[in-house]
């Protein structure tokens, strides 16, 4: 028994078939609990009013936007080193989900930013690095779609993911430098995670974050199952063509 057993598409399909309904139910439950608790059963913040409640969408999606890329990095490495097809397909499946998470984080951030800072967008380091992350997701997905040979596409996107990760990290610290150089003192304070938040807000936030994590897993597994079926279809068609 080892984890590599699941790298076989057949085993993966068999396991996820019974795992998915449970995970989906758990994801719906926790996202629902987190959001409903957060939106309706927490007091308004004394400074921010009810606008603070967007935190229950913003923080979990931002968290998953980064985690999705990290997961793609790991699965890409596994594909490059051990050449397990499921690993490559997991990375492929995760990218659009990560893209949407990044978009949600950016949009909710803008909506939150307007009443708080008086602007939808500022070239703050944190915001800018998310925009760059968004571009990385776009490039990654575009490369997957452009290359027709599936194994080659997996190879190339994996290399792009590795190189991209290094540059994403570089950009993250580079924009820090750039911003301080530009607007000293006017940098916007961004609420980060739960450290500055009291327990009333923090518990539903935690539930919501767990829910988004579960939702991500469910979506990625679902998409991977679809990818595996698509690959099987391709293989069957190719075999038919070869036989005729």
């Amino acid at each position: 028994m080892s984890i590599w057993k699941y790298a076989n598409p057949t085993q993966f399909m068999r396991t996820t078939r019974w795992l998915l309904p449970w995970l989906s139910a758990l994801a719906i439950l926790s996202v629902g609990t987190g959001l409903i608790w957060g939106f309706f059963f927490t007091p308004d913040d004394f400074r921010q009013g009810s606008t603070v409640k967007i935190i229950y969408l913003h923080v979990p999606s931002a968290l998953m936007a980064i985690n999705a890329w990290l997961m793609m990095l790991v699965t890409s490495l596994i594909w490059l080193i051990r050449r397990h097809h499921v690993s490559a397909l997991l990375a492929r499946a995760a990218a659009p989900v990560g893209l949407v998470m990044t978009l949600i984080a950016l949009i909710t951030g803008g909506i939150w930013g307007q009443p708080m800072w008086g602007t939808y967008w500022a070239w703050d380091p944190r915001l800018t690095s998310f925009l760059i992350l968004f571009l990385f997701y776009l490039g990654y997905i575009a490369l997957w779609q452009a290359v027709e040979t599936q194994d080659t596409a997996a190879d190339l996107t994996s290399v792009l993911c590795l190189v991209g990760s290094v540059f994403a990290l570089l950009s993250r610290y580079a924009v820090n430098f750039w911003n301080q150089g530009l607007h000293q003192g006017t940098s916007v304070p961004v609420a980060t995670g739960g450290r500055t938040v009291s327990d009333v807000f923090f518990v539903p936030l935690l539930i919501s974050m767990a829910g988004f994590g579960l939702m991500f897993v469910v979506l990625v597994l679902l998409r991977t199952r679809t990818e595996i079926r698509a690959r099987r279809l391709q293989a069957l068609l190719a075999r038919e063509r070869a036989a005729s």
């Binding site: 076989n8 598409p9 057949t10 399909m13 068999r14 097809h85 595996i228 690959r231 099987r232 391709q234 293989a235 069957l236 190719a238 075999r239 070869a242 036989a243």
Partner: peptide
């Protein structure tokens, strides 16, 4: 030598896969 059956090389042709 033209390859027709790819079952041994292509994991996606496993008959158990559904």
């Amino acid at each position: 030598f033209r390859a027709t059956a790819q079952t041994d090389t292509d994991p996606f042709l496993d008959e158990a896969l559904l």
